[in-house]
Design a protein around this nucleic acid. Structure first.
Lengths: 200, 200
DNA sequence: ACGCATGCATACCGGTCGGTATGTAATTCA
DNA sequence: TGAATTACATACCGACCGGTATGCATGCGT
C-alpha cells in the first residue's frame, strides 16, 4: 500500500490548496471549506495538522511564499557571477509572467496590503520576507559597486528598498489593469532606473 | 429644529464612516454593523440610502477616494505653473504623511489589491481613478517636455505609469514596515528617477 | 390641513464562517 | 501481539454576516 496515511504529503497538499485559495481570495476571505473541497479532505484532517486558520496562513507565508521567493529571485541573485547584469536580466525577465499571475498579483504583496494593519504576526513574517528580498538586491548592488559597475555614490540600501517597492507597485498596478503589457512597460522603466545607477 | 431629517448629511456620514471602516479592514472584511455603530444609525438608514454593501463600497470609491485623489494630487498638478518642479515637490511632500496613513496605506491601492481579482465592477471603477492619476502625471511630464525641461526621448506615458506604480509600491512597502522613514527614503528614490528624466 | 412619499428604526432570517467534540481506523512501538 | 498514539472523518455549535419586511414618524406638496 502506498496511498494510505502519508501525513506530511497530506500536510503539503493542504498548504498548496491553501496557497491557491489565499492567492485567489486573500487570507480573510479564504474559506477553509473551499480548501477542504479542493483537497478532498475534511476538517478533522486540517485541524489535525494546523491548530487554526491563522497558523495555516502563517505556514503558507513561510513554507510556500517564502520558499518561492528565495528560489525565484534571491538565490539567482546570490549565485550570479555578474551581479549588475543578473539584476537587470531578472527585472526584465520575459519568462514566467503568466496571465494568471498578473490577474492575482504577487502573493507577498497581496498579503502585505491585506494583513499588515490587521495582524502583527502576519506583518512580522511578511516583513521578514520583504527584508530578505531587499537584502538580496542590496547585496547584489554592493557587489556590483565593488566591481566598479555601480557608481560609488549610490546608496545601495535605499536603492534596494526602492527596487522592491517599485517591483511590487508594478505588479499591483498591472494586476488592476489586467495587462501584461503594462507590467512589461512598467518593469522596463524600473530597469531604466537600475541602469541609471550604473557607471556611464 | 435643525437635527431632524437631513438625509444628504446622513448619507455623507455613512460614506465617511464606511471609508474609515474600509480603510481599516478592507472592503470584504468591513462590517456593516461597525459602520452603523460608528454613525449611530441603523440598518434601515443605510439600506435606505444604499441598495447593498457593494454599492456602498463603489460610492466610497467614487465619492471619497476619487475626490480625495483629485484634490490632493491631480488638481495641484494641473494648476501648476512649473510642471517639473511641481511634480518633484509633490513626490517629496513633507506634509500630511500621518503615521496613521502609513499604517493603513493608500486607500486606492488597498482596494485595488483586494478587489480587482474578485469583482470586475470594483476593478473598473478603481482603474478609472488609476488612469486619471496616470494621465495627470503624463500631462505634467508632457508640459515639462514642451517647456524643454524633460528630455525629448522620454516616453511620458510609460514614465507616468511607472511613477504611479512606484508611488503605490512605496506606500505599500512602508505600510508593511510601518516606517515613515522608509517611505521618505523610497519616495526620495522615486524623486531621483524623475530628476533623471530632466535635461542635465 | 391633509395625504403621501421620504427617512429612518426594529425585528428577524438564512447562510456561512471558524472551531470543536467525538468516533474510528491505521500505524507505531513495547 | 497488544497498547498507545497518530491520522483522519463526522456531526455539530455559536457567532456573525448581509439583507429584508415591516412599522412609524417626519416633512413636503397641494
Amino acid at each position: 500500500m502506498d496511498s494510505t496515511r502519508q501525513p506530511d504529503l497530506t500536510r503539503q497538499r493542504i498548504l498548496e490548496a491553501s496557497f491557491a485559495e489565499i492567492h485567489r481570495h486573500g487570507f480573510q476571505a479564504a474559506s477553509v471549506a473551499n480548501i477542504l473541497a479542493d483537497t478532498g479532505l475534511t476538517k478533522g484532517a486540517l485541524y489535525h495538522h494546523f491548530p487554526s486558520k491563522k497558523d495555516l496562513g502563517l505556514a503558507v507565508v513561510d513554507e510556500m511564499i517564502g520558499i518561492g521567493l528565495v528560489e525565484r529571485y534571491i538565490r539567482p541573485l546570490r549565485d550570479a557571477e555578474h551581479p549588475a547584469q543578473a539584476l537587470i536580466e531578472l527585472i526584465g525577465m520575459k519568462q514566467g509572467i503568466s496571465e494568471e499571475f498578473i490577474r492575482l498579483g504577487c502573493p507577498l504583496n497581496n498579503l502585505m496590503q491585506e494583513m499588515s494593519p490587521v495582524d502583527e504576526e502576519f506583518r512580522n513574517r511578511l516583513n521578514r520576507l520583504l527584508s530578505q528580498w531587499q537584502e538580496a538586491f542590496e547585496e547584489t548592488l554592493r557587489r556590483a559597486q565593488m566591481a566598479g559597475e555601480v557608481r560609488g555614490e549610490v546608496n545601495c540600501h535605499a536603492a534596494a528598498l526602492f527596487i522592491v517597492s517599485a517591483w511590487e507597485g508594478c505588479t499591483g498596478v498591472a494586476k488592476n489593469m489586467q495587462s501584461v503589457e503594462a507590467f512589461r512597460a512598467c518593469m522596463s522603466q524600473l530597469q531604466g532606473y537600475v541602469v541609471s545607477l550604473l557607471k556611464t
